[in-house]
Simulated scan of single mutants.
Amino acid sequence: MFQGLRTNSLFYVLDKGENPNLQIGQVVSVSNPQTKYPTFNNGFTPQPMETVVDVKVKINDEEVDFKQLPANGQIANDKNLVVSDNKEAMSAEVDAMLRQSKAILENVDYHERVVKSCEGMLLQLNPQIAKEKEQAEKISKLEGKVSGMEGKLDRMMGLLEQVASK
């Protein structure tokens, strides 16, 4: 639990962003548990108050503050950042992330077929898209032909210059 952390305890930080990575730091300080503001449901009955702590952690010679972590929790996440004081909880989080990514990779072929099918269906449903796609393909082919002609013209000019200089 975050409220049970002590100075120099290990603290795990998982960044699930663009380039996932795990950092292990050491706790510098932990605040005393504070009550979170009470929440009310539709009947205006206050819900049980949750307590939170602020944890300061040293990671790679830099101190980082983690605010309002659940005092009785072992793991917390916010967007792409997951923090924990428990190696097993963090290991389970990394394992879940790995399983999810493997499942996605196993279904890549299916999703590529879905994309291709949907593009075809959209062309059927909206002929304007088909016309625009056809025009884009024609323009691309023409650009290729023009660049090929430029290369041939450059070679012809080179040959003419060689002949003229003799």
Rank of each mutant, 00 (worst) to 15 (best):
G151V: 02
S165M: 14
L159W: 08
Q135K: 04
K152V: 04
P48S: 05
G25D: 00
P38A: 05
Q162L: 11
V53D: 00
Q23G: 09
A136Q: 09
Q128D: 11
N86E: 12
T7G: 13
K152M: 15
N80V: 10
M90D: 01
L159K: 14
D95Y: 14
S31D: 02
K58T: 00
D78I: 13
D15L: 05
M156C: 05
A89P: 06
P70L: 00
H111G: 01
Q34E: 15
G151L: 03
G158M: 05
K131W: 04
Q3C: 09
A89L: 09
G43C: 14
M157Q: 15
M97F: 11
K16F: 06
E132C: 15
S117Y: 13
V115S: 13
L122H: 05
G158N: 07
A130T: 12
L69T: 02
V53C: 03
D85C: 15
M156V: 09
A96S: 10
N32M: 15
S117G: 15
F40Q: 13
E112H: 04
L122R: 10
L69P: 00
E93Y: 02
Q23P: 04
M149R: 11
K152R: 13
Q26G: 09
C118K: 12
K166Q: 13
G148A: 04
N86I: 12
I75P: 00
A164F: 09
L122T: 03
R99A: 14
Q47R: 12
G73D: 03
E93A: 01
N8H: 13
E132L: 11
D54P: 10
K133M: 04
S9P: 02
G17F: 06
V146D: 02
C118I: 12
Q74H: 12
L14K: 06
G158D: 05
N8R: 15
I129E: 05
K116Q: 14
F2E: 00
I139S: 06
S29P: 03
Q162H: 13
S140I: 04
V53E: 00
A130Q: 05
Q74G: 11
L81C: 02
P38G: 12
I129D: 09
R155E: 12
F11I: 01
A71Q: 09
V64D: 01
S31C: 03
K67P: 12
N86A: 07
Q47E: 05
E112G: 09
V57K: 01
K56T: 11
V64I: 12
N77R: 14
Q128L: 02
M90W: 00
K79S: 11
V115Q: 11
D65Q: 08
K16G: 02
G25H: 02
S29R: 08
N19K: 15
V82T: 04
S147L: 13
I129F: 08
K56A: 08
Q135E: 07
D61Y: 03
D61I: 07
R155Y: 15
